[in-house]
Design a protein around this nucleic acid. Structure first.
Lengths: 239, 239
DNA sequence: CGTGACCTTGATGTTAGTCAACGAATGTGG
DNA sequence: CCACATTCGTTGACTAACATCAAGGTCACG
């Protein structure tokens, strides 16, 4: 919860009292294995999920069972804060690794929102940034090659892990299987495997288990046409 | 503005006074030709754009100049209400047809937001639905064929035009060029042209200028795997 | 009657999907 | 300690989807 608050404060000013109210948010913590559906698509939410440990994905499922992961959430992210505004879900949430998720009841969040307007703006801003990532991925999926998309994701996760103080932008732990990564990038697992090999041969990617190193960040950014602005949106807004 | 309010009320309850305040929102109306950039990427917004007439797109631009249109906005849509929460833009807005756009100053919107909490929730909800459409498109771009994507878009626009009372779900005016449509669907204009022909041959699509008819909506939905739930989210929320 | 915007067509190359199989690492129960 | 199953990464052969390049065709408009 501290990490969530920390990142909220990057964009939205909150008084000390407001900050403490957020830290005091209740919620049951649930531990799950990898590859479990935490929220099944088509539910009506009565709580929002905060990632306490592990790596979690929001996904959209097609009739044939294929999944597209539409968002990755790391420690300190709320997966579905927007469900406070709109509780019906088309999407689902799955654990990508062994994870711990805190289910924060909407009743508690709503109490905050009703008590002062700053919370609503802060939460809204958080979901807007989530949406700007979605829009970027839209462009990537529509207009870029698998190689550029993979490079882009690696750049993005590097920045996000660094902001979250979970790693450095060119060296971090990213415990995701190739099949899951393929579901993020909208390719098959086979093709993803070959794409990763291509990046390795270009000297842009080194993997060691789930450890990712990006030896030539500059060139990787060029391949990805990566501009981190969309991740840093909304610095120091007014209330 | 009436159409915007009407659709806002589908999801969010507002008092009579609140409704009138929204109808009284100020803003200069600007008329533009087709194919003009209304907002260039990388700006800091001081207003939000309401579509009064025409068809407008939000886009993401790549370094090579290629565009991915990430959202289509019809009469009564706010293109970028989220810029009230986060004014920095990675995206831009372009007119797809001759259009009229009303630029509503953030100062005026902020005055509303500060005066009562219901506005913030209503606006937030509006942007959440925008985000849910983005997520759907994410899945479509990542996991579906061009034909399925086209079919999906036709179903989606049918519903949206019907809700907006601008047409029926199986018969509506959709004044967009094939090149623009290709930018929405993430394919080349040439391939889009062939994809449209395929749908026509299947008896699923009839075009007459910008007039679209969908003779076999049922089968079209199957091809698209279309489920309209994501467009109808948030009916009758509490304040 | 020329010009520009838009749609259409054909030929060809590239990217990514599909199917099938194998290897390495890990864990499990006998 | 050893068969066995499971998960994950990897490879090869083949096919389908889509991009690219280049050229016409149609229509509205000045």
């Amino acid at each position: 919860m501290e990490k969530f608050l920390f990142r909220l404060l990057l964009r939205s000013p909150l008084t000390k009292a407001e900050q403490e109210a957020i830290l005091a948010l209740p919620g049951e913590e649930v531990r799950t294995q990898a590859h479990r559906d935490i929220v099944r698509p088509g539910n009506r939410m009565t709580y929002s999920c905060l990632v306490v440990e592990g790596l979690v994905g929001r996904f959209d499922q097609l009739a044939n069972g294929h999944r597209q992961i539409t968002a990755l959430h790391i420690v300190g992210d709320f997966c579905d804060l927007h469900s406070l505004a709109v509780p019906e879900t088309g999407w689902g949430i799955e654990s990508l690794t062994d994870s711990v998720v805190r289910m924060v009841p909407h009743t508690a969040l709503r109490k905050l929102v009703d008590s002062a307007p700053a919370y609503t703006m802060a939460f809204w801003r958080d979901t807007v940034v989530d949406g700007s990532i979605l829009a970027k991925w839209n462009a990537a999926l529509g207009r870029r090659s698998a190689k550029a998309r993979l490079a882009h994701l690696l750049c993005e996760m590097g920045i996000r892990f660094e902001i979250a103080e979970l790693g450095q932008r060119d060296e971090f732990d990213f415990p995701i299987t190739q099949a899951q990564l393929a579901d993020v990038l909208g390719v098959t697992a086979v093709h993803l495997n070959r794409t990763m090999q291509a990046l390795r041969q270009d000297g842009l990617l080194v993997t060691n288990g789930s450890r990712i190193s990006l030896p030539d960040a500059k060139r990787l950014r060029q391949v990805a046409q990566f501009d981190e602005a969309y991740l840093l949106l909304g610095g120091a807004q007014s209330r």
